[in-house]
C-alpha cells in the first residue's frame, strides 16, 4: 500500500509536471507564432511607408539621352572588321576647315568674344597610318557567319538586335564610328515597353536619309514586321531624334541613305 500510494503520488505529480510542460510548450510556441505575427504586421507597415515614398515608378526615362550604366562589352558591340571590298580613297583635299559655327545651335547669336578666341582648324595632313594588323577577332565562327556578306553592322542590346547599312558602301568602312553611334542613339530612343508580346522575334526594315546636319528625313518602312505596334514604334523612335550628329567632315556627300532593321528580343 505505501508503495502504491507513493506510486500514485508520483503518478499525480508526473501528470502535473507533464501538464505543466505541455502548457509551457504551448506558451512558447504560441509566443513564437505571436511574435511572428507581430513582426509580420510591422514589416507590412514598413512596406506601406516605402510605398508612400514612391521612389521608383516609371519606365519612360529612356528618352533622356543617356546610355545605361553598364560596362560595355567590346565583344558584344563589334562592328565590321572585314570590309567586303577596298573602299575608294577619301578625297582629303576637299576637306573644309570646320568652324565653331558649323555646329548647329538653337539660337544663332554667337558670343563673339568667346568663340573667336580659340583658333580651331583641322590638323595638317598626317602621314598614312602604319598600323600593325589587327588581331583576328576571338569569336566563335559558325557556318552562317563566314559566308554571308551583308554589309550591315549588327548590334545587340538589351532591347533587341538592330543593324545598319549605309548604301554608300565606303561610308561604313571609312566612318565606322558614325554608323556605330547612330545605331546606339536609335536603340536608346526605342521604347520597347509599348510593344505587344507578339512583336518579339519579328523584324522591321526601314530606310531613311541623314542630311549633312544630322537630321533625319524620308523615313520609309520597306518591309513591315506584320506587327503594327512594332512598325509604329520604329517610326516614332526615328521621329524622336532631332539630329544624329553632323556627317563626318571628311565625307563629301550631302546626305547618306541608311537601311536599318530592328528586332526586339524576348523580354
Amino acid at each position: 500500500m505505501p508503495v502504491m500510494q507513493e506510486n500514485e503520488v508520483e503518478k499525480k505529480s508526473l501528470l502535473r509536471e507533464f501538464g505543466g510542460a505541455l502548457l509551457l510548450h504551448v506558451i512558447v510556441i504560441g509566443g513564437i507564432a505571436l511574435s511572428g505575427f507581430v513582426f509580420h504586421q510591422r514589416s507590412q507597415r514598413w512596406g506601406e511607408n516605402a510605398d508612400l515614398s514612391g521612389a521608383v515608378q516609371a519606365t519612360m526615362v529612356s528618352s533622356i539621352p543617356l546610355p545605361p550604366r553598364v560596362r560595355p562589352r567590346e565583344d558584344n558591340v563589334l562592328a565590321s572588321e572585314h570590309p567586303s571590298e577596298a573602299p575608294p580613297q577619301p578625297t582629303t583635299k576637299a576637306e573644309p576647315p570646320p568652324k565653331p559655327t558649323d555646329i548647329p545651335v538653337q539660337v544663332r547669336q554667337p558670343d563673339k568674344k568667346e568663340s573667336k578666341r580659340v583658333a580651331e582648324r583641322p590638323t595638317p595632313e598626317t602621314p598614312k597610318q602604319k598600323q600593325p594588323p589587327p588581331p583576328e577577332p576571338q569569336k566563335a565562327t559558325s557556318g552562317s557567319t563566314g559566308g554571308v556578306k551583308i554589309a550591315m553592322q549588327a548590334m545587340q542590346s538589351r532591347i533587341g538586335t538592330s543593324a545598319v547599312n549605309v548604301t554608300d558602301q565606303s561610308f561604313g568602312a571609312r566612318f565606322g564610328y558614325y554608323v556605330r553611334q547612330m545605331n546606339q542613339r536609335i536603340s536608346q530612343q526605342w521604347f520597347t515597353q509599348t510593344l505587344d508580346t507578339s512583336a518579339q522575334g519579328r523584324r522591321v526594315y526601314l530606310t531613311f536619309r541623314i542630311s549633312r546636319d544630322g537630321s533625319i528625313s524620308e523615313i520609309n518602312i520597306v518591309k513591315g514586321s506584320g506587327n503594327a505596334s512594332l512598325d509604329s514604334s520604329a517610326n516614332r523612335a526615328l521621329q524622336r531624334i532631332d539630329s544624329l550628329g553632323p556627317l563626318p567632315d571628311a565625307y563629301s556627300g550631302s546626305y547618306i541613305t541608311v537601311q536599318y532593321y530592328f528586332e526586339p528580343s524576348q523580354q
Partner: peptide, 26 residues
C-alpha cells in the same frame, strides 16, 4: 519501480532541459 523511475527521471531531465532551453530563448 526504480527502473521505471530512472527512465522517467531521464525523461524529466530531457523535458525540463528542453523547457529551460526554450525558456532561455524566450
Amino acid at each position: 519501480r526504480t527502473g521505471r523511475r530512472t527512465t522517467q527521471g531521464r525523461m524529466y531531465a530531457a523535458i525540463s532541459t528542453s523547457i529551460v532551453a526554450l525558456l532561455l530563448t524566450t
